[in-house]
Design a protein around this nucleic acid. Structure first.
Lengths: 202, 202, 202, 202
DNA sequence: TATGAATGAGAGTTCATTCAT
DNA sequence: AATGAATGAACTCTCATTCAT
């Protein structure tokens, strides 16, 4: 099974990912060249191509990986919290993710500067390697909630888009208000959205 | 006066803008080179640098111009509509803008693919050349509405972010639903947001 | 005779020369473009070509003009000094020119940075516009000196080359010694050169 | 070991140096582009930047290399000559270098046209790669000469500047006289300079 | 005489990608 | 599997020069 070789391979890949993340968040993707990544990683240029097809491939894998980690932590915290009410659970998760992004602004910046919310959302909703599937958790949460939700997918979409687009400028630029001030508004709107999706459409 | 020369200058600039818009929306900014733009425009390379500092300068000018046009049209339509109720006015404007973006998907794509909501928002909120100032219109609308609005700026921010982030995937990819299906949800949430900002914070 | 027009012409030319000198000495010829010169001079680009053929033409005219001025002053000072001894006259002129260059290091730098000693020497030896002709003065000095000089042209060449090449680094960089320290050595060697040219060749 | 690769690398570098030297001396540095160099050398443009940072880097390396070679040869010839008298040694070296420059006018032109006497002098005085150090040889020569020399560094400076500035026009343009005619004058002045530096300053 | 918009060749440089080792 | 020298297309940007006004 060549474990040593496989370990070595994974190590090289990880080094490249780590170095790329650092450079991407430090100086931006556009201004980071593959040459720089491999040089900073202390790995040969040709080796890069053994693991990634190009700069955007490594970026996507980076975002997918980090995003799924963020979600995983939020899910674990939710489980530990013992919260059972559906609305509170959603708010809890949003809050937890916002706090993580607030503490990992480099990642938030990378995600936004590269328009990769799609990848982020995929990491939340679909199954990516690491195996957490928020869609599944979400569906289960809906089932466990007593009341039925109309168009649950649209509702999730609205919430994710609202949260992601507002938190970006709030966290990074405190515009129009900082994260702490934004949260009450945001949570209020989220609760409104959920409420609305419990009523028949108007 | 130099009418002929000035006309010629404006014409060159316009040709460059038009050509750049076409190429940017067709194949993306990153993959469009200045060489291509000038070649397609039938203008000398040096001439480009007479009017723009670089590729991103022409993109910004493009987005600012187009965005302010979109808003101007929405404002004019609102005036012509005779609607007086505040909530309905907001919905009307959002609806109008969504329709315009739906019909100008190339622009929508350009704006999003280049993370230039900031520029778009500036065109809406601040005064750019063409002289329409939505912030001013918005403030007037609030005054004319009978009931007071709490944190009007945050409210506008929430609405703009919600609309802009959701419409992108709805219009361009019909994801998670198409624009027609999205609108009722969106308008419902917007009304909730406005309602919430009429109540004292919870 | 269109004096006004002629005055205007001369004024434009002078402005260009003055501006070019400033830019050449400030940021070097290579990094100074004609565009910059005309812009700084507040004159149209096309006008430049009415007076000069290119960047190097204006540089040469600049150096020739400044050089001949330097010599003119040295000649006038010599006449005023009343010195009659040949050797002392040569030393006096060299000393005077060295002092001028020391006070006009921008010019010295321009001359050297552009390998234009030839032009400088021409300005000394040949007749350039302004009409001072050092060669003529030099020949007269030799005639007035009692003793005959062998190969006077070679002698002048040796002196000029020695002075010009050594003063550059002494004045601008105090290398290997500063101008004050260099002078005694230089004058000593010059006197040796003159002495040698009074003896038959060995 | 990588002998083959290393050989190949050195060969590329040498080819570039050789080609650059030819073009620089044929048509001047200013009018030689990197594109021309690599095209003439039959090497890819990118490869140039693997070995040199820019045009001036290759020029400096060229001059330093050639200059140190010239000196090395003069030093070897001196050793072989068996001359012991200090003055004669200096004259011998100057004579040898003059002859070499006379036979390598392309190099002489390159050095002068690019004002790189500093680099040339460094190659003479300091230790550059090839390992000859003229300053060291010079100091030893002074020690071995019986009589003490005042300000030996200034003396060397005077000689180098005198020789280099006069030989340029004599060799390349026979102005004011050709090299053969210049030599006696030059040697005479050099002997005067040395003599003067044996006496206390006047 | 004076202008300055327009030109376009070409300079310098980067960098993703290949492939022999 | 890993290397890194070599590639060369493609890029941005400059600037001397022209010429219609």
């Amino acid at each position: 099974m060549g474990t040593k070789i496989d370990q070595n391979k994974q190590q090289k890949k990880d080094t490249l990912l780590k170095t790329a993340f650092h450079l991407f968040t430090t100086k931006g993707i556009a201004k980071t060249s593959i040459s720089e990544i491999v040089e900073a990683a202390g790995i040969a240029k040709g080796t890069f191509y053994l693991y990634f097809t190009d700069k955007y491939d490594i970026r996507n894998k980076l975002i997918a990986h980090e995003s799924s980690l963020i979600f995983k932590k939020a899910g674990e915290a939710l489980a530990a919290s013992g919260i059972t009410n559906f609305d509170d659970r959603i708010i809890f998760i949003v809050d937890h993710i916002l706090n993580q992004l607030n503490e990992n602004q480099a990642l938030l910046n990378l995600i936004n500067k590269n328009l990769s919310w799609g990848i982020f959302k995929n990491a939340l909703i679909q199954n990516t390697e690491e195996g957490v599937n928020f869609k599944h958790v979400y569906d289960q949460m809906i089932q466990e909630s007593g009341t039925p939700i109309r168009d649950p997918e649209v509702m999730l979409f609205l919430i994710i888009e609202l949260v992601s687009s507002t938190c970006y400028s709030a966290i990074l630029y405190q515009e129009p208000v900082d994260l702490v001030s934004l949260k009450p508004h945001l949570f209020e709107v989220i609760r409104s959205i959920i409420d609305a999706h419990r009523r028949p459409i108007t």
